[in-house]
Design a binder for these strands. Sequence first.
DNA 1: GATCCATTCAACCATTTGGTTGACGATTCA
DNA 2: TGAATCGTCAACCAAATGGTTGAATGGATC
Lengths: 115, 115
Amino acid sequence: MTAEDAHLDSTFAALADPTRRAIVTRLLEGDCTVGDLAEPFEMSLAAVSKHLAILTRAGLVTQTREGRTKWCRLEVTSLRPAALWMEAFGSFGAGDLDALEAMLIQQGLAEPDQP
Amino acid sequence: MTAEDAHLDSTFAALADPTRRAIVTRLLEGDCTVGDLAEPFEMSLAAVSKHLAILTRAGLVTQTREGRTKWCRLEVTSLRPAALWMEAFGSFGAGDLDALEAMLIQQGLAEPDQP
DNA sequence: GATCCATTCAACCATTTGGTTGACGATTCA
DNA sequence: TGAATCGTCAACCAAATGGTTGAATGGATC
C-alpha cells in the first residue's frame, strides 16, 4: 500500500465520525483548546482527546502546547488529497450549488440569501 | 444524529479502505460482476463480497442478479454529499462561498448567476 | 510546598472491521 | 440427474473504535 493510500485511509477514516466532523467544522472558525472543543459534547474529555489523537494522526489537526493548555489547529491542506480523490469522481452538476449552500447554511457556515 | 450525518458516516467509512477505493475506481469504468471485481485482489472471494456489502450498505454500489452472476454498479450520485462536504473544507474556508462558486463555474460545473 | 487546572494515560468493555475456511443456495449445462 | 460455477453465510480470529472511569503528568497559583 502506497503512502498516498495510507493518507487517504486515515483521512477518510478520520472523517467517518460525526464528532470528528463537528470538531473539524468548529476548528474552521479558528483555533481552540481541547477543553473548548470538548465542551459541546456529552462525552468525557478523554473521549474527545482520543478523537483529537485520530485527527492528529491523520494530519488534519496539529496541536501546540501553550502553558498548561493545548491549542488545536485545523490543517486544511491536509484534506486536499482526499478532496481531490473525491473530485475525480466529481459529478457536481449545475444546480447542485443550491444543495451545497443549503448544507453550509444548515451547518451555520453561511448566511441565507436575502431575497 | 441526522440522516445526513449517517450517510456521511457510511460513505467516508466505505472509502477508508484501499480495496474498496480500488473497487470504486474499477466500477467507474463500467459495471462488473463480483468475480471480476475480486480477480485483481489477493484475497478470498468472501472478503471481497464483504467489502461490496459495506459499499452497498453505504449506497455507493447497487447489485442486480442476472442468472447466477451478480452485476455491481457504482452509484455516483451517492458520493456527492461527501464530495460536497470535502469541497467545502478542502479548498475553502467559511465565507468563501463566492470563491467556491467561482471555481465551480470556471470548471463548468455550475452556471453563473443571472443578474 | 501544596494545590488546583488542563490534558493524557491505563485499563477495561462492547462493537465493528478485515481477513480466513468450509458449508450452503442458486443456477447453468453436459 | 448430476456436476461445475458464482456468490453468500456462518463461525472464528486479531486488531481497531468509541466509550467509560480513575490515576498520573505538567504547568499555574497561592
